[in-house]
């Protein structure tokens, strides 16, 4: 469902991704690991279509269509979801209002049946419960005054409702205590299905104890320098990134 070939991308005209290749098939869970500043968030943002993140070479296809030509909202409507590393606050816009607008657009575009407000509220409450957020969070402004952990759980709550085809999670584990981490992992695992692709961007292997990936990739200096199975994550845990990135430098 996601085909990335020799992708080059810039952030504010600065080259960050330098020939990245990655294929994600339906049903697969991929983990992308790598040191800080290696370009993990850049990849996620390029795929989701953030302003200032430009594809300068290669291609990224989602469901056979080039992402480069699509507006961010079109990508979302096509089923691409990004759980943000730093979810932003939108004061005064209630979570519920926000979800309503999002679901109307995305479900509409996907030809799914429209949820009336009663259904929407029921579904939203269930999703909150799944990530251990009190239903009162639905009435609050989007991320407004939420703690770091609450923001992350709020992202997963939205993801559960939006039922994306491809979910990109950018460091969803960072800043979570062990209980919250397990809650989030449970939420993500509940979305695992043969039709859905999941890409976990993470700095630590900790999350991967709970969401066991099919593939692990190491990103360094804008390229995937090593791929493997879940055991690669453990190896990284033991040895750190140095042996790989160092190897890369001397090669």
């Amino acid at each position: 469902m996601l085909e990335i070939r020799d992708l080059h991308a810039t952030v504010a005209d600065k080259p960050i991704l330098k020939g990245l290749n990655l294929t994600v098939n339906p049903g697969e869970v991929h983990a992308i690991m790598g040191p800080n500043g290696s370009g993990k968030s850049t990849l996620a943002n390029v795929l989701a279509g953030r302003d200032n993140y430009a594809i300068t070479g290669g291609e990224a296809l989602f469901e056979g269509k080039s992402l480069a030509k699509q507006e961010p909202e079109e990508r979302a409507q096509a089923g691409l979801f990004l759980a943000f590393q730093y979810p932003v606050e939108i004061p005064g816009v209630s979570n519920m209002e926000f979800l309503k607008a999002a679901l109307e657009s995305v479900r509409g575009a996907q030809g799914k049946e429209e949820w009336d407000s009663v259904t929407l509220l029921r579904q939203a409450r269930a999703a909150c419960k799944q990530v251990n957020l009190d239903a009162s969070f639905l009435k609050r402004g989007v991320n407004e005054g939420f703690s770091g952990g609450e923001k992350k759980r709020n992202e997963i709550m939205q993801m559960l409702l939006m039922e994306p085809k491809l979910a990109l999670l950018d460091e969803t584990d960072s800043g979570l205590d062990i209980d919250a981490l397990q809650t989030v992992a449970k939420g993500v695992n509940s979305l695992r299905s043969p039709e859905r692709g999941i890409v976990l961007v993470t700095h630590y292997q900790r999350l991967l104890d709970y969401i066991v990936p099919d593939f692990v990739h190491v990103l360094s200096n804008g390229q995937i320098i090593k791929s493997g199975g879940k055991e690669l994550a453990h190896e990284l845990e033991e040895k750190g990134y140095g042996w790989l990135t160092g190897e890369e430098e001397s090669a």
């Binding site: 279509g49 302003d51 909202e73 979302a76 943000f84 607008a101 939006m162």
Partner: peptide, 17 residues
């Protein structure tokens, strides 16, 4: 902010809305 706009658009909400 650009971040707010991007969050909305990433959730399928068009810029005008």
């Amino acid at each position: 902010s650009d971040d707010q706009m991007f969050l909305c658009r990433q959730r399928g909400i068009d810029p005008e809305k």
